[in-house]
Simulated scan of single mutants.
Amino acid sequence: MSKSDYYETLGVARNASDEDLKKAYRRCAMKHHPDRNPGDAHAEAAFKECKEAYEVLSDASKRRAYDQHGHAAFEHGMGGGGGPGGGYADMGDIFGDIFGNIFGGGGGGGQRAPRRGADVGYVMELSLEEAVGGVEKQIEIPTLDECDTCSGSGSADGKLEKCDTCQGRGQVRFQRGIFSMQQACPHCGGRGQTIASPCGDCHGQGRIERTKTLQVKIPAGVDNGDRIRLAGEGEAGPAGSPSGDLYVDVRVREHEIFQRDGDDLHCDVPIRISQAALGDTIRVPTLGGEVELRIPFETQSGKLFRLRDKGVKSVRSRKPGDLYCRVVVETPINLTAEQRDLLEKFEATFVGEEARKHSPRSSTFLDGVKGFWDRMTS
C-alpha cells in the first residue's frame, strides 16, 4: 500500500513553517491518540502516520530529502524497520516533545539550566551627610556562601556521576491521560548528575551558612529609597551554580536642620524681630559650610530665600540642587527690665489708624474681619 503524502497527512501546505507543522501535528495527534480512541485500529494507524509525517517534516535535512525524492528518500540508508529514522519512535517521545512545554517541561529533554542562588536584601541607614557626599561602609550579611572545602561542587573528591533516575537528562517523563509530561528529575534536581562522595562540611550542598563581610561603596547623591545592586554577592547557588545578587536599600535618617526634597534642601532660619525690621546679614549653614545671607529690611516671617547650587548634587545628572531658607521671626523671651521698657515705649508709638500702615498682614486681616461682619449683619 502506498503511503499518504506527509503534507496531506498533517493538512498543511508544502511551504508550511515549523510553527504551522507543530500546530498541525498537535491537532492530528490529539484527534487520533489511542487513549482517546481505545480499540480503534484506524485511529492508531492514523496517529502513527501523524508522528511519522511530523518526524520527517520537522527535521530540516529529512524534509529537504522528502521534498526532492518523496518516500523513496527513506527506503535505503536510513535504517531498518520500514520507517524514516529506523522505525517508529516511542509514543511518549514525540508527543512529549510537542506537549511537554505546556506543562512546564523542557520539550527537548535536555538538562535544566543551573538553579541560581537567591538574591539577598540589606537595608543601609545613612546620615544626610553620608548620602550627599558618598561613603564606603563595611557590612556583614548572614548568607549561604560557597563551601571552601569542595569549592562549591558538593563533592568530597570532585567527581560527579550520571543520575540513574533520569540517565543524565535532568528531566523525567510521565504519562497523564493523553498527555506525556516531563519535569525536573526529583533525584538530581534537574542537574543530570549526582554526587557519589558528598563533602563532609556542606553535606553535598556546595554551600554553608556563614556571615559574609563586604565593603559597599555608596555613590554621592543617593536618596531615601534608592537601591544599589552588587552582582553575584547574594546566596551561592547549589552545587556550584551561579550566585544571586545583593540589593542594598538606602534609608536616610532625618536631619536636625535640613529636609531633603529631591535634590533641593530646606531649612528654617530663626531671626530676631529687630533683624527682620532693620535688615541684617546673617550666616546660615549649608552641607558645605556656612555662607552669608542678606536679610532685607522689613522682612516678614516665612519669607523664603533661595541659595543656588547649595543643595544636593544628583547621583544621576550630577547637577546640584538649591537650598531654600525660610526665615522665622522669633518673639524675644527672658527680657530684662530695660528691654521690656524699650519695647513698651516702642509699642506706644503705634497709635490709632497710623499703626495699621506698619503691620501689612494685620491690616489685611482686619479689613477681612470687617467685611465678614458686614456680610453677616446685612
Score class of each variant (00 low, 15 high):
residue 203 H to Q: 14
residue 204 G to Q: 00
residue 205 Q to W: 01
residue 206 G to S: 00
residue 206 G to M: 01
residue 207 R to A: 00
residue 208 I to S: 08
residue 209 E to T: 01
residue 210 R to D: 12
residue 211 T to N: 13
residue 211 T to F: 04
residue 212 K to H: 06
residue 212 K to N: 03
residue 213 T to S: 14
residue 213 T to G: 02
residue 213 T to F: 02
residue 216 V to T: 09
residue 217 K to M: 06
residue 218 I to M: 11
residue 218 I to E: 11
residue 218 I to Q: 12
residue 218 I to S: 08
residue 219 P to R: 11
residue 219 P to W: 11
residue 220 A to G: 15
residue 220 A to M: 10
residue 221 G to Y: 09
residue 222 V to K: 03
residue 223 D to Y: 04
residue 223 D to M: 15
residue 224 N to C: 08
residue 224 N to Y: 06
residue 224 N to I: 06
residue 224 N to R: 09
residue 225 G to T: 03
residue 225 G to C: 04
residue 225 G to Y: 06
residue 226 D to F: 07
residue 226 D to S: 07
residue 227 R to C: 05
residue 227 R to H: 02
residue 227 R to Q: 14
residue 227 R to N: 09
residue 227 R to L: 03
residue 228 I to A: 06
residue 229 R to A: 12
residue 230 L to Y: 14
residue 233 E to H: 04
residue 233 E to D: 06
residue 234 G to W: 02
residue 236 A to G: 01
residue 238 P to H: 07
residue 238 P to Q: 02
residue 238 P to T: 03
residue 239 A to N: 13
residue 239 A to V: 14
residue 240 G to D: 00
residue 240 G to P: 00
residue 240 G to F: 07
residue 240 G to V: 02
residue 241 S to E: 00
residue 241 S to F: 05
residue 241 S to W: 04
residue 243 S to R: 00
residue 244 G to H: 01
residue 244 G to T: 00
residue 245 D to Y: 01
residue 246 L to I: 11
residue 246 L to Y: 04
residue 246 L to K: 02
residue 247 Y to Q: 02
residue 247 Y to K: 04
residue 248 V to Q: 02
residue 248 V to E: 01
residue 249 D to E: 14
residue 249 D to I: 08
residue 249 D to A: 12
residue 251 R to D: 07
residue 251 R to V: 10
residue 252 V to Y: 11
residue 252 V to F: 09
residue 252 V to M: 09
residue 253 R to Q: 15
residue 254 E to S: 13
residue 255 H to I: 10
residue 257 I to S: 12
residue 258 F to C: 10
residue 260 R to W: 08
residue 260 R to Q: 15
residue 260 R to P: 10
residue 261 D to Q: 13
residue 262 G to K: 06
residue 262 G to C: 09
residue 263 D to Y: 07
residue 264 D to Y: 11
residue 264 D to A: 11
residue 265 L to P: 14
residue 265 L to K: 08
residue 265 L to Y: 03
residue 265 L to R: 06
residue 266 H to N: 12
residue 266 H to L: 12
residue 267 C to V: 14
residue 267 C to H: 14
residue 269 V to F: 11
residue 270 P to H: 04
residue 271 I to T: 08
residue 272 R to I: 01
residue 272 R to F: 10
residue 272 R to M: 09
residue 273 I to G: 14
residue 273 I to N: 06
residue 273 I to P: 01
residue 273 I to C: 11
residue 274 S to H: 04
residue 274 S to G: 10
residue 274 S to W: 08
residue 274 S to I: 12
residue 274 S to V: 12
residue 274 S to M: 09
residue 274 S to L: 11
residue 275 Q to T: 14
residue 276 A to L: 07
residue 276 A to V: 10
residue 277 A to R: 15
residue 278 L to P: 05
residue 279 G to L: 12
residue 279 G to W: 13
residue 279 G to K: 13
residue 280 D to M: 02
residue 282 I to P: 11
residue 282 I to R: 03
